[in-house]
Amino acid sequence: MKDKDIIAVFENDLDLVKAIGSLKESSIPVRDAFTPFPVHDVLKMLGRKSRLPYFSVMAGAGSIILVFAFLYYTAVIDYPINYGGKPYFAFPSFVVIIFLLTILITFISTVLVFHFRTGLFPGKEPEIPVPDSSDDRFILTVGVDEGLSGEMRSMAKEILTKSGALEIIETEQ
């Protein structure tokens, strides 16, 4: 939350998406949107692209190699035991463990990276401008430090009102 932001409260996601569209048309930068549930259009219109899936793929590929190396080391090099007359390096018996541990490692590392990158941890104070956005309201914030002049400021307010904002809050210092 920066000072002097314009905070607009909307009743539904359609109005919010419409407002983002008209703000973009007048080239007024939108800082952020807060919605009670994920709205795909908002992600798309704000141009935010998550790189988390790429991380997950890399983590998955990495953990396949890691788990395979671990299994190979334990079952073939360090402590070879003959069971059922199978060769020490019995690949089919590795597959299930590779499969399960890959899912586990990928999942845990993705969760951790997500929390690290977004700065979230248990007990963190929420950074939402209007608490209602976790209930039934849709919030849009327009920042000032992107060089918003007084003229644009009033234009932004006008656009937000037109698109059906229930209320517009302006935070001062």
């Binding site: 059922g84 007359g85 199978k86 089919p92 018996s93 597959v95 299930v96």
Partner: peptide
């Protein structure tokens, strides 16, 4: 299917 048959042998 392959795995169970392979393992049981």
């Amino acid at each position: 299917q392959y795995f169970i048959i392979w393992y049981a042998n």
